[in-house]
């Protein structure tokens, strides 16, 4: 088995005349929490659908744990997925549905009951095990859907917009669960919520118009190892020449009270920050903030040219 648990090569998918995926290449390493990002219509839901085997690709190769995505049932119990908008069965007690899904995933009858109870407790819904689907709120059903994805402690979990529609406390619980899953479990998250992706993901890919724009670690995407931003009081004269001299080989850009410094990723950002702060303090420039790299939102907007 390769280190990559998800491999996608030259993946294409069209809906009539609309190209949803155009030769997408992607790789998710074992143990990563991988974020799929993109504006509406970028192709992330289609990518998610192909990876879970719910959608068929027109061309290209997509494998999960070395199995073609269309046959993920062969990995029963090793892969879990939480679809965004799939209704959870309404008439059955949620516990019964979870037991059924756990059994389909390869658990014994007794282990399935234990698993159902475990995952419901994990998402904070142990007390509604006997409730039927229609008796639960949207947010609760969302958490039940997350619970079913975690049945049997899978090696890989796909989560589509896992916190959409959840209140802040429930969203935090979901993010805590995701953090706790890695690195034993690889997680692939599709989300619009860039702050959430930046918070919980270790890696990510940005899609736009069905194409892969960029992919890599969140550190790389946000240039945390190759860029620092210092916010100073706006309107004061800045010692630009001294700053440039302090960080040879780096590029400085000053705009409306923000000093952006790009440098080779081989350089230690701590040294760059220390050198810049020294100069600014010497010249008595009021410093309001220091940030490594840029926000994922900025990276996203730059990558998608929006």
């Amino acid at each position: 088995m390769t280190a990559a648990v998800v491999q996608v090569r030259a993946l294409c998918k069209t809906y009539g005349a609309k190209v949803a995926l155009d030769a997408v290449d992607l790789q998710v390493e074992r143990g990563a929490v991988f974020g799929l990002l993109g504006p509406n219509g970028a192709g992330k839901s289609t990518t998610f659908g192909v990876l879970t085997g719910w959608l068929g690709a027109d061309a290209g190769v997509a494998t999960v744990l070395d199995v073609p995505c269309r046959h993920l049932y062969r990995l029963a119990g090793k892969v879990g997925a939480m679809p965004q908008d799939a209704a959870f069965p309404r008439m059955m007690p949620v516990e019964e549905t979870l037991v059924h899904l756990a059994r389909l995933g390869g658990c014994s009858a007794a282990a399935s009951r234990t698993e159902a109870a475990r995952v419901l407790e994990l998402v904070g819904l142990g007390d509604v095990a006997r409730s039927r689907g229609f008796e639960l709120s949207h947010g609760m059903l969302k958490r039940v859907a997350l619970a079913q994805a975690l049945l049997g402690a899978p090696e890989l979990v796909f989560l589509d917009e896992p916190t959409a529609g959840l209140d802040p406390a429930a969203a935090k619980r979901v993010k805590d669960i995701v953090r706790a899953l890695a690195p034993r479990t690889t997680v692939v998250i599709s989300s619009h919520n860039l702050a959430e992706i930046q918070e919980v993901c270790t890696h990510g890919a940005i899609l736009d118009h069905g194409r892969l724009v960029t992919a890599g670690s969140i550190e790389t995407l946000t240039r945390r190892g190759a860029e620092v931003r210092l916010e100073v009081r706006e309107g004061l004269p800045l010692p630009t020449a001294a700053l440039e001299a302090a960080v040879p080989g780096a590029k400085l850009r000053v705009e409306r009270g923000v000093i952006e410094v790009s440098f080779p990723s081989t350089t230690d950002p701590a040294e760059i920050i220390a050198a810049l702060l020294r100069v600014l303090l010497e010249h008595r420039v009021p410093i309001l903030g220091v940030q490594r790299g840029k926000s994922l939102e900025s990276a996203f907007l730059e990558a998608t040219k929006r």
Binding site: T52, G53, W54, L72, Y73, A76, G77, V79, G80, A81, P83, D85, A86, A87, F88, P89, T97, L101, L104, G105, G106, Q148
Partner: peptide, 16 residues
Amino acid sequence: QSRAILYPTLRARRLA
């Protein structure tokens, strides 16, 4: 229609 079929398809063949 409800997409509830997505839940078992990861664990069982569609034929099953």
